[in-house]
Nucleic acid binder design. Structure first.
Lengths: 301, 301
DNA sequence: ATCGAGGATGTAGCGTTGCTTCATGGACGT
DNA sequence: ACGTCCATGAAGCAACGCTACATCCTCGAT
């Protein structure tokens, strides 16, 4: 039972195929396939089965992949047990975040981690569909992800740490009739043009929930994922939008007005594989990230 | 962090040296040494330190060895997760027992396991000093061991399953003045010659506890570890002894009389490494062993 | 239907890893 | 002071695992 092969099995499951797993593991598809074959030989049962031109794990493969998570966690705990005796935790941690989260959290995270010394943080911005966030944890140590109110991450083999909850406000142009209001109710927005995010992406469902409260379907004229672009469009009078309260860059031409009646918001979490979550340096960075998120949501309201 | 190397580290600790560990692992001392060196390089700290002509684990090494137990357990759990999907558990399990325990438990164990089919049990008899029982678990899957009342096995990385508790009775010759009694108190035995077990071996301390109750030091004339030999000596009138109630072969020339006042007894347990305890076949054998032990202690009183 | 693309899996060859053998250097007991 | 025991290095060899290449299969396109 090679630990590397178990790792590979997990990756094949999370990435959904041999080729994708091979890319993540920096291997050729052939190597991955051979590892699976060897593992299956050792286990005495088939771990994968062909489906179409891809493959999927059998029940046995799924069970073994679950067990493989515990193996990886135990190995990382062993590593951490040694790191304790090192004078100071060293290493590099890869952190990714979606755009608005990145702008809010990454700068203060980097300065805070810098004070610890010895830990290098490599950042990247990754904006993917809601369902694709978990798979990022194979490539990146800490994934800052967001989800609309009500949605939950799949529990299987994923460590989730809540960073902050952020209300979604209605963004209207500065000169809009509603701009002076303290609160806006869903019914006030029936005649507006909407700038929404792409389908399948986080908070896409929230607009639907708001519209449901007023009973009319929203008129979506643009689909923009980057909130700062959406903000610019709103300022230019091309529609209204739902934008997160803390992240809104404070564009001078835009006013954010809270929604009345509907509870609209998103949650920002840190996602990690259970084994990477055990790494000492990762835990240090995560602690810093939690602190930074707390400051951010306190400071801005 | 190679799993094999972690395994090696554990063995070096439990066996107390590179050479002994190498023997258990079927390797050369050089290979063991190289694995330790590679592990230490990877961990970044020294795991062992020379002491005299041997070596001992450092604090970091000890911590890593502890973590290695969890790794081994996780790996075996993974194996077991696959075995569940196999039609029927197969494999061989090595069981060892001290003499009297072996005679009592091994025959019914073998017949019981035979009914399961597919599992081979390899038996051996190992009589060692009390402190040496745990180290046997590196060589043998299930170690049937015994300990005097009050003694405990070291908790570190050892799974203990209680099999039975057995009172120790006073064995006297058939024609001895005390042979007719229902109970014997400690004071009645002040003038007897004793046949004890070797120092450091299980139940050696019990005789001391009995003597303490009467206030006089026991006159030990022979030290015999094998209870059936001790029994023969008692029958021939060479002294009295403390013998386990269930295991006593029922030698016609010997009477076992319970002790009054003092609680004298020994406990028989199954000892396993935590990782081997996870193996499915081992668990089957262990279940059988527990059942056999229950029958034995019920049947014989 | 035919063809091409994408995906998984075998085969040959090569590099790396990890073992054994042999030799060296301390530490203890006689 | 010598021999023994134990751990550790260096050299050589075998085995394992990866890459590269080829094959088979499935699906979507023309």
């Amino acid at each position: 039972m090679d630990v590397r092969a178990l790792e590979t099995l997990r990756t094949v499951r999370s990435q959904g195929g041999v080729a994708a797993a091979a890319a993540v593991l920096h291997l050729t598809p052939s190597a991955v396939s051979q590892q699976l074959a060897s593992l299956s030989r050792e286990a005495g049962v088939a771990l994968t089965e062909r489906v179409g031109r891809g493959l999927r794990l059998t029940a046995a493969g799924d069970a073994l992949a679950d067990a493989a998570v515990d193996v990886a966690v135990a190995v990382e705990r062993a590593r951490a047990a040694c790191s304790v005796f090192l004078d100071r935790p060293e290493g590099t941690v890869r952190v990714s975040a979606f755009q608005s989260g990145a702008r809010l959290l990454l700068p203060p995270l980097l300065t805070r981690v810098a004070t610890l010394g010895g830990i290098t943080v490599e950042c990247s911005d990754e904006d993917v569909a809601l369902d694709d966030f978990p798979a990022l944890t194979d490539r990146v140590d800490v994934v800052v992800a967001h989800r609309p109110d009500g949605a939950q991450w799949p529990a299987s083999g994923l460590r989730v740490v809540l960073l902050l909850r952020e209300p979604l406000d209605v963004a209207v142009p500065r000169d809009h009739p509603l701009a002076g209001r303290d609160r806006i109710s869903a019914g006030d927005l029936d005649d507006e043009d909407w700038i929404a995010v792409r389908e399948g992406f986080p908070v896409a469902t929230v607009l639907g929930a708001v519209a449901a409260a007023s009973g009319t379907a929203p008129r979506i004229v643009h689909r923009i994922n980057d909130f700062s672009i959406a903000e610019a469009l709103v300022a230019a009078g091309h529609g209204v939008s739902l934008l997160p309260r803390f992240t809104g860059g404070g564009h001078p031409g835009v006013r954010l007005v809270p929604l009345a009646g509907v509870r609209a918001g998103r949650t920002v979490d840190a996602l990690m594989r259970p084994d990477t979550a055990e790494r000492l340096v990762v835990r240090r960075v995560l602690d810093a990230l939690v602190a930074v998120a707390a400051e951010a949501s306190n400071a801005e309201r």
